[in-house]
Amino acid sequence: MREELLEQLEEWHEEDEFEAIVDAITEIPEEERDYVLTSHLGRALNNLERYEEAVEQFLSIAEEGQEDPLWHYRIGLAYYYLEQYDNAREAFEAADRLEPGDEDTLEFLEWIRSKTEEQEEEAAVSAVEAPTGQASIPADTDVTDFWDDGAEAADSFTMAQPTDDLVESIEEELVFKLPAAYIQMMKVHNGGIPRRRYFPVTSGDATEGRIEIAGVLGIGREKRLSLCGEAGSRHMIESRGYPEIGVVLCVCPSEAEAVMLDYRAAGNDGEPEIVHVDQRHPDKITRLAPNFQAFVQGLVHE
């Protein structure tokens, strides 16, 4: 019976009868579907351009699929057409590692590289040419050269660019509206380690010293060091004793220190100032910049 079903599924696939495949497999109770049937279902959903449903099916057999290049290829295809290029690249790279030289896999990897470059260029242009009245990344900031992606810990911060829905979700969880310029910058490169990691601290006309940052938290949850990640803003405020003034923006080499978005004057929906906090001196909050743009522009090399 099973062999007959599998032969029928392959026959329908050759005849482009993808709806018939979906109907036949979904009639089988979910708990009775094995890896092979779920793979057939995911492939058919891909062919029907129902990519979100396909991803859901493939993820349900992720553990079994780790050593199967076809599983990586098929979920990579779904991610690609959902424009989730970082996830797609990771999947196709795994497929290529398990089955080197497959032409279709290599072609998708080339397409992803091209698409990613286009997105970064378009986002960089739109970020520095925001309409009048909207906050933007400083015009003299080279967005594409701002980050040190070669730094050893860069992958601890960097994620795929956030969607508008994700930004809204993160803001709801934080209960603060994120600066528009910060959002724009994260849509070009979401979190990471800047090449310029020092911010001079001044008093009047004199420079007192400088603050060093270790990385900028990106918008998301998937990385521990992201705004709502396992070790994100809320966790750091609660575990390290930082003041309840807003959102942790940057971590510092010392866990006692952080750079934060300070909403005390602006309110939760306003434009926050950028401040330095040190739990060893809880009563001292050092103002660094009036907004995110000025903070980015003020970062210097060692």
Rank of each mutant, 00 (worst) to 15 (best):
S126Y: 06
E122W: 10
F92H: 02
Q57K: 04
E121V: 06
G204M: 07
P282Y: 01
D269K: 11
F157S: 10
E103L: 10
F199P: 01
N190G: 08
W71K: 08
E118F: 12
A153W: 04
Y73I: 04
F58M: 05
A231V: 13
V300N: 01
G270M: 09
L48I: 00
E271W: 00
G65P: 12
G204F: 08
I274S: 10
S169Q: 12
A123L: 04
T286G: 12
E4A: 13
Y51G: 01
E53M: 10
G133T: 10
Q279E: 10
Y80L: 10
A231M: 14
E120F: 04
I245G: 09
M236P: 03
E129I: 01
V128L: 08
M159H: 07
T26M: 04
G65T: 12
V248E: 05
V247D: 07
D104F: 11
R234H: 09
I170P: 05
E107D: 03
S114D: 15
V251D: 08
R97S: 06
V277A: 12
S254K: 07
H189Y: 08
Y35E: 15
G209M: 06
E99C: 11
E244L: 13
L225N: 10
E271I: 02
R2M: 15
A20L: 03
G229I: 13
I137V: 13
M1S: 15
Y73S: 09
G209P: 04
Q66N: 15
R224G: 15
S203R: 07
D145A: 14
R195D: 03
Y51C: 01
E122V: 09
A91R: 05
G42W: 05
D142C: 07
R74F: 10
L299A: 00
E15G: 04
E168N: 14
L109A: 07
E302R: 00
G229V: 13
A88W: 09
D262L: 10
Q279C: 12
A266I: 05
R89Q: 12
E3Y: 13
R196M: 00
M1F: 15
P282G: 01
D16W: 04
V55W: 10
Y73F: 14
V300A: 02
D96Y: 12
C252M: 03
R197T: 02
E212P: 00
V167A: 13
E121M: 07
L225G: 09
E11M: 11
A20C: 01
A127F: 07
E27H: 04
N87C: 11
C250H: 05
S114G: 13
A78L: 11
Q134T: 00
I183G: 09
F295R: 02
R2Q: 15
A294P: 00
A258L: 08
E230A: 15
G246M: 02
N190L: 08
L41F: 04
L37P: 06
P200I: 03
L98N: 05
E32I: 09
A123C: 04
D205R: 05
E120T: 08
V300Y: 00
A265W: 01
A214M: 01
E302L: 01
L299D: 00
H235A: 13
H276W: 12
F292D: 00
E64A: 13
E212C: 00
A266C: 09
F146V: 00
E3D: 15
M185D: 07
V247Y: 06
